[in-house]
Design a protein around this nucleic acid. Structure first.
Ligand SMILES: [Mn+2]
Ligand SMILES: [Mn+2]
Ligand SMILES: [Zn+2]
Ligand SMILES: [Zn+2]
Lengths: 136, 136
DNA sequence: CAATAAATGCACTTCCATTGCATCTTATTT
DNA sequence: AAATAAGATGCAATGGAAGTGCATTTATTG
């Protein structure tokens, strides 16, 4: 078990205090978070820095964006050994209509989707909406 | 084959010149359209009117919104006899990364998605991204 | 330490969704 | 038909979030 510093460096990300805080915050959450969630957690943080940090994390395959249909981008840490970079790790996302939280169902991969002849599938986004386990 | 006027009235929508134009425009398109698409087609039209017309159409199950992940809401006519209102008509949507157009694949229903114990699925949004038949 | 590269913070812009309110139009009632 | 009510439209304004430019601070390297 490497330290967070080692992990980020292995991903070619330079260590800064802010980045460590953001990483730890993401790791402490079991649900996907918005930029505002992070901003509220550290009110001294500038929104732009958070935005660009998440962008860096995403480029380095440390986090992935989630579009759950609420219109607000959410972020979650990638799983150990996920395959975000090659588009293989297509797990589904669940959005709770009650508590409004979104969670990665990393164990639930998106089934193979058939598309009509002539169409080429490159990426799939699947969001299930309903009631989460905590709310039901 | 009823007239458009009769159809809209059967859906409890009052007939206006603008609504007929918007309906015909939607019917003429085989792809999902944005508010701006409609606005550009009728430059005399006010954006708010278009917006509210589409909202009305949606409430009356004449059109459905599509969130294809571009961040811009798109609209398409519901199919004859679709089941938007009861959430049964869950066809998938295809977004072309090349021409940037989004199309309803109404013949392709979303497969049953398994969710973990404790979760209740109420709705599913599935968007496939790739290359469409015209671009491949 | 000097030189360089990267990260941060502030201000600003852009884009789209959404609303308030006044006005115009259509449907209903007397 | 005139009066009234209900609904549709247009203009202006707001709000929320994503994204960018640039100056400043911080870290890295020789
Ligand atoms: Mn996820
Ligand atoms: Mn559709
Ligand atoms: Zn919930
Ligand atoms: Zn295409």
């Amino acid at each position: 078990m490497a330290t967070i510093e080692q992990f980020l460096e292995s991903k070619d990300i330079r260590i800064t205090a802010m980045r460590l805080l953001i990483y730890k915050f993401l790791a402490s959450k079991e649900v996907a978070v918005t930029l505002s969630d992070i901003q509220n957690a550290f009110d001294k943080a500038d929104r732009t820095t958070l935005y660009r940090t998440l962008k860096t994390f995403e480029e380095k395959d440390v986090v992935h964006q989630i579009d759950d249909g609420t219109g607000i981008t959410k972020y979650a840490l990638c799983e150990e050994g996920c395959n975000c970079e090659i588009g293989t790790d297509l797990h589904l996302h669940f959005h709770c209509n009650n508590c409004n939280e979104t969670i990665c169902l990393t164990q639930h991969k998106i089934p193979q989707i058939k598309v009509p002849k002539g169409f080429v599938s490159e990426d799939v986004n699947l969001v299930v909406k309903g009631i989460c386990d905590k709310c039901s």
